[in-house]
């Protein structure tokens, strides 16, 4: 285990320069550029560990928004493949795949490049599916309006305590795969309690993306989240219009 206490050494001297700057200043500059390009579209940066169901969630949400006349676009982040983009392509919305070639997160510059190719002129909402990782993506602002953390019930109720940054920085937590609860000892109340202990303002949705579920209760969370997204789209569009009059 790499856990030495090596940080109490005194420096070897030299000229001291006071800096007092955000260490991620250059990423912030690109994030601001992205925000300007996003325009009226409401942008969600979706974080989670691998396999929590981010793409399945988009497969549930995007058609529901489309049915009600809202246009979505999707930026997919993946270490190695374009498998997720192919799934999004089936939904008939503009999508762009960023393959990071081993990098464990998306940064603002990668998104900046993707915006040269992705058609977002009609988009009301843009979903950025980050690389599956609950640590690294939390450090990088992509110019989004909101981070959303997805946690599946199979991951255990202690996840928010073990990976606090993702829950601290997100405005929404989606507890996914709730259809599996009867087969698990996972305690949904405990998941919420732990997440709210990190960020008491988290807005929480419980979802299932199973396509063949017979019980409507599993899909209520999807409907609630779609309503939430629609409201955010309207607010962002109104603010954008106000600023550009």
């Amino acid at each position: 285990m790499l856990k030495s206490n090596r940080f109490k050494r005194v420096s070897t001297g030299g000229r001291s320069l006071t800096v007092q700057k955000n260490a991620l200043e250059s990423n912030e500059i690109n994030a601001k550029k992205n925000k300007a390009v996003f325009g009226k579209a409401f942008v969600m940066n979706i974080l989670s560990s691998p396999g929590s169901g981010k793409t399945s969630l988009l497969e549930s949400i995007v058609p529901a928004l489309k049915l009600e006349g809202f246009n979505a676009a999707v930026i997919e982040g993946d270490v190695e493949t374009d498998l997720d983009k192919k799934r999004i392509d089936n939904l008939g919305v503009p999508a762009y795949q960023i393959i990071t070639n081993g990098t464990c997160h998306l940064d603002a510059k990668m998104v900046n490049v993707s915006l040269n190719s992705l058609d977002i002129k009609n988009a009301d909402v843009i979903f950025i599916e980050n690389v599956g990782n609950l640590v690294c993506p939390t450090s990088f602002n992509l110019g989004e309006d909101m981070k959303v953390v997805v946690l599946s019930v199979t991951e255990g109720d202690d996840k928010p305590l073990k990976y606090p940054a993702a829950f601290y920085k997100s405005k929404v937590m989606i507890i996914n795969k709730t259809d599996l609860l009867p087969a698990l000892d996972s305690d949904i109340a405990k998941i919420k309690e732990n997440a709210l202990s990190i960020n008491k303002e988290l807005i929480i949705f419980e979802t299932s993306c199973r396509k063949k579920t017979t019980e409507n209760i599993y899909n209520k969370g999807i409907a609630d989240f779609v309503s939430f997204v629609k409201e955010k789209i309207r607010i962002k569009a109104a603010e954008f219009q106000k600023q550009n009059i």
Binding site: S16, T18, V19, Q20, N22, A23, L24
Partner: peptide, 9 residues
């Protein structure tokens, strides 16, 4: 949640 550069020598 900040990462800030304070000083360098």
């Amino acid at each position: 949640d900040e990462i800030k550069i304070i000083e360098i020598t």
